[in-house]
Amino acid sequence: MPRATCVTTFGEVDAPVATPPRAEQTAPDLRDLYERMLRIRQFEAKVDVLYRQGRVRGPAHLGLGQEAIAVGVAAALRSGDFSLGTYRGHAHALARGASEEAVLRELLGRVGGICGGKGGSMHITSVEHGYYGSYAIVGGHIPTAVGMAWASRIRRDGGVTACFFGDGTTNIGAFHEAVNLAAVWSLPVVFVCENNLYMEYTPIGDVIPVERPAADRASAYGLAPLVVDGNDVAAVREMALAAVDRARRGDGPSLVEAVTYRLGGHSVADGGAYRHPDEVAAARTRDPLVRLATEMAQSGEMGVDESDALVTRVKGEMDALAARVLEEPTPDAAGAWTGMWSDGSAAWRN
């Protein structure tokens, strides 16, 4: 059985990992995956700065350090597949192809925001790209994801739904109801638990009676305990391809636990003081971007000069994007009274 080494709050864990039947897999285009992760990283790094300047409306929950999961899973999906994420969802929207400009407009409260100024950071949605929303009630979207997969099953259209959530979310009832239903109905859904070792400020180990928040619960639903190193984009992609393939074949859901680490605070407002600096420093050495860049430099696929130049270029693009969007107009108040109903209206009475 393959094994994955993951660093957790309990120290290094070398876990046996069940792997679903292998899908037909083509070799990953590592440069492409790297660039996708890098764009998300630089986008969010810019958001962090903009927040500190007081320019972002409301909170923002960044996925710095968790990009490999969003990008690796998105690389396993087809256009037409569905994905759903959480308030920590910028990466998931962007990884499916959502417009950086429209997302940034939403965060900065500008005309043309991806949710028209009514969603903000926690509700980024890009249906056009198959990203069916970011949800801010912990676990509230997991039953929705199951319903989308149910629709695919009824239509027999081969569609697959991917649903992202955190380790802390495995303690809420909606998670258990939804995974159970998906398993009972054998629905084409891939549940991806991003185990970043913390639920807000609390180490996950303090609030679960098992070692692994998702994998150790899987057997209750007749599912295999799948664990993947969530900082290894190629490994995530490979695991996701297998799970997506299983779903597409009609063999039912998978529950994947991707172990990672949140390099920043829970939200931009959180300094993360509850974490030992050594722990964060150690995590930085496993940064998925650093890791892939090092790997590609060693294999000769992308030299250090080239990856440095890429970082400089993308960072420049994000700076320019932010400067441009900050110059744009803000929506006026009238919009608040529209769009509650699908015809654009909002009246509850005559």
């Binding site: 039953p143 319903g147 149910w150 695919s152």
Partner: peptide, 15 residues
Amino acid sequence: SEQAIAGAAMGAATA
């Protein structure tokens, strides 16, 4: 599983 029932309805409608 009332949460799963209502949520699945939402997902199916979304789809």
